[in-house]
């Protein structure tokens, strides 16, 4: 795991080291400033969580990082290079998994979509699909259609499809927001294990302050109108995290309080 402290050094940018860097990024959509000058760096292997009141621009910031929007001011860089379009090294896990999956393709077929697109030969795909399904706990569900799966399973499937891209970065927009508490906690731990095994960099948007602290190496709080960084917290909690021990840790409680106060003040 990269040292989170490195990424905190905002005043002396280190473009070569940052996986994703926002340089005075601003975005105006339809004459309205949605994001105004965000500067931020995400180190390789880091898990950065983004919180903020509804409508403050979290999704927009994530879309900028994905290359789905082009900034109207400043620049977004990926490994030092300016980003103009989405790239395969950056996978996006959308919140609305029901819309992001192809309903006419089975679980295997949905993963295959990514493998076909990266040009994997057909005879290699099946083994890779089986491996990926097993990785996200969907072994034996290859033939199921998304509509035959629960919400948690569908989101796992979307994550598996993202992993099929072999991404260096996972951008996740409230991926567990629509799931019940039990499923959500299970998926949090699964995601941490997956990320630890792949070494991917993660930017994770969430409404849930505890989730942000539980998952993150660092938590960024955005302020609304226009969206900008209002708070940065380094999460100094031991890994691997544990649903009970971590959440009872005094540091966890302190961070939760700080985030809570921030959100309260920003609304």
């Amino acid at each position: 795991m990269a040292e989170p402290a490195l990424a905190l050094v905002q005043s002396s940018p280190s473009p070569a080291r940052a996986q994703i860097a926002f340089d005075n990024v601003a975005l105006t959509l339809g004459g309205k400033a949605i994001i105004d000058t965000i500067s931020l760096e995400v180190a390789p292997g880091e898990i950065l969580c983004v919180v903020g009141a509804s409508g403050c621009g979290k999704t927009t910031a994530l879309r900028l990082a994905a290359g789905l929007y082009e900034p109207t001011g400043g620049s977004v860089r990926f490994e030092g290079e300016p980003m103009r379009a989405p790239r395969r090294e950056i996978a996006v896990v959308f919140q609305d998994y029901g819309k992001a999956l192809l309903p006419w393709r089975s679980a295997a077929g949905n993963i295959s979509l990514a493998l076909e697109t990266i040009g994997m030969p057909a005879q290699q795909r099946e083994a890779r699909i089986t491996e990926l399904l097993a990785k996200v706990g969907l072994a034996g569900h290859a033939a199921k259609y998304p509509t035959e799966m629960s919400g948690g399973m569908q989101q796992r499937l979307q994550i598996a499809r993202c992993l099929a891209q072999d991404p260096k970065v996972l951008l996740m927009d409230e991926p567990f927001g629509a799931l019940d508490a039990m499923t959500r906690q299970g998926l949090q731990d699964e995601m941490l294990a997956l990320v630890a095994s792949t070494g991917a960099t993660v930017v994770f948007v969430t409404h849930d302050l505890e989730e942000a602290i539980y998952l993150g190496d660092r938590v960024v709080g955005l302020l609304p109108h226009p969206g900008r960084v209002g708070l940065e917290l380094t999460v100094d909690l031991p890994r691997p995290r544990d649903q009970l021990a971590t959440r009872e840790h005094p540091e966890f409680l302190r961070l939760r309080r700080a985030l809570f106060d921030f959100i309260k003040a920003s609304e």
Partner: peptide
Amino acid sequence: RLYEVARVLH
């Protein structure tokens, strides 16, 4: 959303 998935996948 599916068009965005397609864009992300190139």
